[in-house]
Amino acid sequence: MKITATNGGGFAGITRSHEVDTAASPAGAALEAALAASPFFAAAVDGVDDDAGKIGADIPHWNITVEDGGRRHSVRFADDGSPAAARWRGLLDRILAA
């Protein structure tokens, strides 16, 4: 399974990307379990209630993409501290720590 987390936005406008291959990562099994326990693959691409196109340029946002065999899914969310974004923040923290 390949997991990519890319962020952008914020006042500096810096973009960074973090990639994890769960087959090669010591945290791979835990990440796969976290994904299986989450609503990730059933979630809309815009993982929060508001439209990702309306995210202001000064608000950091993340795009998490998971590729597993022939299955590929992405979720975008504003990292604004809202309850809607919090459900993805835990998964994101696991990805960044891997």
Rank of each mutant, 00 (worst) to 15 (best):
S25T: 03
D50F: 09
A27G: 08
G8N: 10
S38Y: 11
D50R: 12
E32D: 12
A42R: 13
F77T: 04
D50A: 04
D80G: 04
A98K: 01
H73F: 05
M1V: 11
G8T: 08
I59Y: 12
R94H: 04
H73S: 05
E67F: 00
L96S: 11
P83G: 00
V75H: 07
P26L: 06
A44G: 15
A30Q: 07
A42G: 14
P60I: 01
P39T: 09
S38V: 12
A36E: 14
A12H: 02
I14W: 09
G28R: 02
A27D: 13
P60K: 09
V45L: 15
P39W: 09
D80N: 11
G53A: 01
A86Q: 12
E19Y: 05
L92T: 00
F11R: 02
K54N: 10
W62T: 06
I64D: 07
A42M: 10
F11V: 06
P39H: 10
L31C: 04
A23I: 00
K54R: 07
H18F: 15
V66E: 05
D46S: 11
R87N: 03
A43C: 07
A23P: 00
K54P: 00
D68A: 15
A57E: 05
S82A: 08
S17R: 15
G56N: 04
D93K: 10
L96P: 09
K2C: 01
T22N: 01
A97W: 06
T15D: 09
F11D: 01
R89I: 10
N63F: 01
G47Q: 05
P39R: 09
I59C: 11
H73P: 03
A86L: 02
A42I: 05
D68P: 03
A12S: 07
S25C: 11
A43S: 15
F40P: 01
A42T: 14
A27C: 15
D51A: 02
R72W: 10
